[in-house]
Amino acid sequence: MATSRASGAAAGKALGRRVLAYVESRKNVAGSACGVVGLGLGAAGVGGSYWPVVVAGLYGAGALIAPPERVAPPLYPDVAEQLGVVRADFGRLREYLAEVDLPPAAGGKLAELMDLYAALLDPGWVAGALAADPEAVHALSRAIRLDVPECVDTYHRTRWWTRLTPGGESPERHLERQLRVLFDEAERVTAGLREAEARRQQTHTTYLEERGRS
């Protein structure tokens, strides 16, 4: 019983919100304005005894020609804000990695990878160039938040099982392969940013040369 009353109250509130929204809508405002014109025409004798029909017709016409209500799209953080979040995630990743033990070969490759990430995220013009490439930011964010932690975690878990049942390719070898793939991906991101800067320089050179000829 209480549930039914609560549901009825919620439905009543929702209906009230919809009615209020329509009252404040452009369609109602435009229709009301046209309806006022209809009342004026009725007072002037236009339409005779059918003046209510004229008012209703003008209201409906005004409501139909009014532009629809625009629902504002959701706002999301811009790329620069996202980069700040990625930078904070990278700090947490480094804290995590400082607590884990890795074999020398994988540890060396991971250190190279972390240095490359740090250089890309270092506040300044490099990070500005990175922020201008949403795809690069996405790739870096995915690697920092998902790929690197998963590589290290699965290595430690698989190594424990391998001690119980030896055989197959070693967890160390898999970890090295994974980190090599991530490093190659980071180098591609870096190369893409370098090419963008090179295109920018070439564009400016072309502009200056054309300006000089003119």
Rank of each mutant, 00 (worst) to 15 (best):
A2P: 08
A2Y: 07
T3H: 11
T3R: 15
S4E: 14
S4N: 12
R5H: 12
A6Q: 13
A6P: 00
A6D: 05
S7T: 12
A9N: 09
A10C: 05
K13F: 14
R18C: 04
L20R: 15
S25C: 07
S25V: 03
R26M: 01
K27F: 02
A30C: 13
G31M: 03
S32H: 04
A33K: 00
G35T: 00
G35E: 02
G38T: 01
A44M: 13
G47Y: 07
G48K: 10
S49W: 05
V53F: 09
L58Q: 03
G60M: 05
G60F: 10
A63K: 05
P67F: 08
A72F: 03
P74E: 11
L75Q: 14
V79K: 00
E81Q: 14
L83S: 01
G84L: 14
V85L: 10
V86F: 04
V86I: 15
R87M: 08
F90D: 04
R92P: 00
L93F: 07
R94M: 05
E95A: 15
Y96G: 09
L97W: 09
P103Q: 06
P104G: 12
A106T: 01
G107Y: 08
G107W: 07
A111R: 14
A111P: 06
E112D: 13
E112L: 13
M114I: 11
A119R: 09
L120S: 03
L120G: 02
L120F: 06
L120H: 00
L120P: 02
L121T: 02
V126F: 02
A127Y: 03
A127M: 02
A129P: 00
A136D: 01
V137A: 01
A139T: 02
R142G: 02
A143K: 10
R145Q: 12
D147G: 00
V148F: 02
P149H: 12
E150R: 15
E150T: 14
C151T: 04
C151L: 15
D153Q: 13
T154I: 05
Y155E: 04
H156D: 07
W160A: 15
W161P: 00
T162Q: 14
L164A: 15
T165N: 06
G167A: 01
G168W: 05
E169N: 06
E172L: 07
E176M: 12
Q178N: 10
L179C: 10
F183G: 03
D184F: 14
E185P: 00
G192V: 03
G192C: 05
G192E: 07
E195Q: 13
E195K: 12
A198N: 08
A198H: 09
R200C: 02
T203E: 14
T205E: 05
L208F: 10
E210C: 04
R213E: 09
S214D: 09
